[in-house]
Structures are given as structure tokens and as C-alpha cells.
Design a protein around this nucleic acid. Sequence first.
DNA 1: TATAGATTTGCATTCGAATGCAAAAATGCT
DNA 2: AGCATTTTTGCATTCGAATGCAAATCTATA
Lengths: 355, 355
Amino acid sequence: MANNPRKKNPPEEDSKVIPLIKGRRATSYDVARLAGVSQSAVSRCFKPGSSISGKMRERVMKAAKELEYQPNAIARGLITQRSNLVAVLVSGRLNLYYPEALFKITEELSAAGLRALLFTVETEEDAEAVIEQAWQFQVDGVISASHMSQEQYQLLEKRKIPVVFFNRYFADHPNTVVYCDPTEQVEELADRLAELGHERAALINGPMDNMVSRERMKMSKSALAKSGLKVVAEVQGDFSYESGAAGLQELQQAAEQPSVIICINDMMAMGCIDEARSVLGLNVPQDLSIISFDGIGMSQFASYELTTIRQPIGRMSEAAVRMITERVERPDQSHEKRVFEGAVIQGGSIARAPS
Amino acid sequence: MANNPRKKNPPEEDSKVIPLIKGRRATSYDVARLAGVSQSAVSRCFKPGSSISGKMRERVMKAAKELEYQPNAIARGLITQRSNLVAVLVSGRLNLYYPEALFKITEELSAAGLRALLFTVETEEDAEAVIEQAWQFQVDGVISASHMSQEQYQLLEKRKIPVVFFNRYFADHPNTVVYCDPTEQVEELADRLAELGHERAALINGPMDNMVSRERMKMSKSALAKSGLKVVAEVQGDFSYESGAAGLQELQQAAEQPSVIICINDMMAMGCIDEARSVLGLNVPQDLSIISFDGIGMSQFASYELTTIRQPIGRMSEAAVRMITERVERPDQSHEKRVFEGAVIQGGSIARAPS
DNA sequence: TATAGATTTGCATTCGAATGCAAAAATGCT
DNA sequence: AGCATTTTTGCATTCGAATGCAAATCTATA
């Protein structure tokens, strides 16, 4: 093609005027030509903080508007080595708590001038593939609210891609984390349960390969112990509504029956409540108290009104985005772990223990 | 920098060997150098269908593995004019039906070798900004499940960015659409209601600026009329749980009370049921029947067990992705509208009309 | 008005991979 | 083996914006 504005050595034939090919997207060269300035000038106009005179800016902007020019983020990314893309890894299946966080994170990223490249990750094998994809797309950072092995994390570190973990972290490895620690609130609730005369509790846990799940289980047990409640049984679910219902059924087998059940997330608590009411014919909370974790929107629907421990998702999402932008700017700064407190939502799913 | 492998006219100083700078990401040149071949060869190895001998491929791949080389999708996008990015526009706030579709769409895109660039859009002004962003990032296409004005759509068309609408379309403008048409199912349900002795229905509508909402309202009314039911009142909500509850309260003012309420989506139906039971002390379905649209996962929780019309979200998402890939390949092919039927979920939220 | 200093502008190159074309190598055929 | 084909390979250029550096213009001062 001879019609390249940047041809370096056009031996004979000189600068044919290239009409803007109909339908072709305008480039900085097109704008430059129309405004009668250099391409550099156009570039500088679109980069805040560049040295440009008012007159020039005006001329360029006028031409840019006429051609509907917007800088090509791909080309820019190539030269600046910044894609302005952040990979967001979420797990969708089981927990409605993710969408809430996801939308918030996306909005915050957007406000920070970054775009969310969304990946769904259900297993560690998924994570493997996703990490390679993210690497190919030169993402500036990763926000992970899903599965990721330590090796996978280390690979990202080695590649100098900042990672912020959302509600999970590696204890024996420095990392940047946003986290909600509901320990105090669990203790508060355990106290409250003791006051209400409860003595026997059961747990419906989440998957044991999940950190949040393990932590919540641990803190629940120790809080219960501290308040003098006994754990009479525990079963395992997978965070889903169905597994909450199934968990309650399984608990029926226990030698000693609990008067209160701690569900490791809201979704299972809802399954548990529904099963208790509609299958076992129990009244919640009169016959059986239930508490849980997360505080997702649905948990306060009138059918459930869970007494639960809310995570401040909005603030956590904000923090995650702030942390990722900071790490993108200064990759070598030290790691940080931001821990938020939970907040008890006084719902209607606990009551005095039946006598 | 003299250490550029591609320097074109290095007059005196000749090809210094450039050590791979520690930590720098490997490029196709690094791989080429290590394997002792040309950069083109490396490029061809990573492009399926290129003419490459087995021996060469092997050598290159070995070097690539050693350097952990993965092609730079940004650079590739610049030259091929394909970013492999698809903007996905969703509205998060009100309807849990979006996350379900969003995750499915993301997975399908991924399977098709495309990445989802996620944008949350709550208003048409948002859409404006989002469209510019998507344009800057050279997205190959847009899947829109949210607000978008006809002007905005035309702007995208003019820019030759294929758009697939998810559950919305412009009637007087050709466009590519995935859509669920529950007309038959509404008629089926209306018939069923008539059989159950219902005579008076009320509607809780969604926002009138929303097409799905308007269509569902219209088809509900005509189905009810056809089956001989009278619409005694209608109120407007905003798709949210709360607005369903409020809607029911508002309906209490009506001169004639309905024995069945049609909610334009599940979320409002859930609000409506909860309000009926816990505030008005009504039994659903004995005192009041309720039907709705969407068939989101929650609608089948035991507390609700909605009789609703499910959209085949999985198949719709698949179709949306297939359509976007087709339009990316052949931008000038004619528009297509894929209409899926709904499916009645026989829940427990309707019963014989009270006498 | 001349000149030093500050500011603005343009030139040329760069980022990393893809690709048309021609040269080189491999293959088939007589 | 010799020549015509076919297949591989490499060279050079391209995509679009950013930027270091030098040239050009403007401003301030004597």
C-alpha cells in the first residue's frame, strides 16, 4: 500500500492525499491531517498533563470531534505497557454473594479508569486457563474472588502481575487482601444465643477447600465454646440452597438435636429454613434458631429475615480497587491486608430455645 | 536504545546480543532468537492453520515454553484489527436474572475464544459513556442486556460494531436479537386460571420504559381477556422485591379485589408473596394466586415455589454468543431474531379461586 | 532590539505480532 | 540426476499511539 502517511522513504511518488476511507475508523493521523498538525500533537491532546498550547488543543479537538476520533486503547496499551484491563475472577454457581460484589467492583474499576475483564472460575483447573488468558491480554492486575492455588498465585507474582484477593488469602505467603473478619460478631451472636437459653448447636459448613468456609467454621466453634454452647453435630454443604436443605436432613440423624444451627453462608441458611418449615414442619425460630454469614440482599426477604453477619461488600469492593490501582502504580510496595469487620443484622431467625 | 532486534539501519555497530532483561516479558523476538529462527516463524507457530514444518514448530515451542512465552493479545489485536473482546452490558441493580445470564454468556464467550469486557449500565447516560469506552477498546462486538437508546444503537451500527440484544429490540429498526416470547405460556396459564375459577386479575407491571416489561404486560392482558378474566387493577413496580411488596399494598386500594396477581417478574412476585403472607396475613395460594415471569433459580425456593414462565437462559446465552461471533465474522449478513419459547414452571403459587 | 530562557511542536522511533512477497528448501516426477 | 512444483522460511512492513530529543516558536528581560 502506498497510501501510508508514515511511509519513510517514498523514493519518487510523493505524498498522495489519502482520502479517509469510508467507514474506516479515524486514527490520530487522520485527525492530524485534518487539523494540519503532527500526529504527536494529537496524541498529546489526549494525554492529560502534556505540554500543549490552548490554540493547538482547540484545533485538534475540533478535528477529532468531526472525525469522531477516540484514541485506540489497544495501540496505546502496546506502547505504554498498560492495558487498563483488570481481570476479575469470580465463581458464579453457588453463591449470590458474588454478583453483588462483582457489580460493585466493576463500577469502582470503571471510576478508576480501568475495565473489568470478566472470568468465571469454578475450579483450580479453570483458574489455570484463566491466568494464561489474563496474561495474554496483558492485564494490569487481577482481583480474585475465586479458586486459586498457591502455585498459580506465585506464577502471577513471578510475572509481576499484582493480585488482590477478595475474601481469601494465603497465610504463609505475603499477599494483598481485602477480607471480612466476623469473629467479634460471631462471638456477639454466640453470647446472645447463650442468653436465649441455647445449649446445643450444629454447624452446616461449606466446602473445606474454601478458606472463608474454614475460617468461619473455626471461629464459630470457638465462639460457641466460649459462650458455653456445645456443638452436637456438623455437616458439610457446598454453599448452595439445596445443600442447606440437605444438611438439615442429615442433621436429623444426630444423636443429640441442636436448638440452633449455624450456617456458613446465607444461601444454605435459606435452604435450611425452607426445609425445616416445609418438610420437617418446624417453626423457625420458635423450634429452631438459625444464624449465618454474608448478609446478601435476599437474606432479608420477609420469608427469611435471617439473623446474619453482613460483609460490607461496598466498602470491600472499593478497597479492592484502590489496592489494585496502588499496586499497579507501585508494584514493589509492601503487601497490605485490609480487614473489615462484619455487622450483625438482627433478623428474626433466632429466638429463645425451646424447653 | 541500540538493543532493538529490529533496528533497520544500524550503520556501524552491529547486532549486539541482547540479554533477555530479567523480569521482562518474553516476546516473539526473544523466542525466535533462542530457537534460532525468525520472528515470523514464531508468529506462525501460534497461529493455527499457518504453514509450518513439524520440526520448526517443535523447536519454537520448546523455546517458547522455556521463556514462558504467550503471544501478546494486545499487539495481535492491533495488527489483526480484532481485539477478541466483547463488551457485555448488564444492569445489575434490580433483577437477579442478569447475573445468571451474565455468567452463562461469559462462559460461552470464553469457549468461543472471546473475552467479556464487563460494563454495568443503569441508565441511558451510562450507556453513552460505556459505548465510548467499548469503542476505545476496539471491542469486536457488544451484547446488550441493558438500557440503550435507538440513537446509541445507530451510533454503534455506524461504527460497524455488531450488537446483539438480549431480551430487547427496536421494533422499527433491523437488529439482531435473542428473545424469549412467553405468549403461549401466558395463554396457557390464563386458561388454567380460568379453569380454577378466577375472574378478577391484577397486574404488577415493571418500568414502562422497559420493553420486556411492556410486552409482558400486553400479552398478559390479552391472554386474560381471551380466557375471560377481567383486569381489575394494575400498578407499576421497578422489578425489585420491594416494589413487588409495595405494589401489593397499592392494589389494596382498588375498588375490586383480584383473586390472582400477575407479576411481570419473579423478584416482584416474591416481594408480593411475602407482603401478602407476613403483612396482610393472606395465604398464598389459597387466598391469592400469583404468577410471574423469568424462572430465576430463587423462584423455586420452598418459600415461594412460584408458578412462573421460565426463560431458557442457557440456550439464549449460547445463541447470543453464536450470533455475535457470526456477525463479527460476517458483519454484513442480514439481521436475525431468535425467539425462544418460555416454559411454564408448575409451582405452588396458584390455586382455586376463593369463593 | 537583541538574546537568554521557557514553552511548544514535529521528527523519528518504539511497543509486539501478523502477513504479502520473494527466496530457499523440500518434494515429486521423468 | 535434473527440472518443475510445492512447501517452508525469512525479510520488511504494518497496525495506532506515545515519547525522547531537537528544532522552532514564544516570552521575558536587559
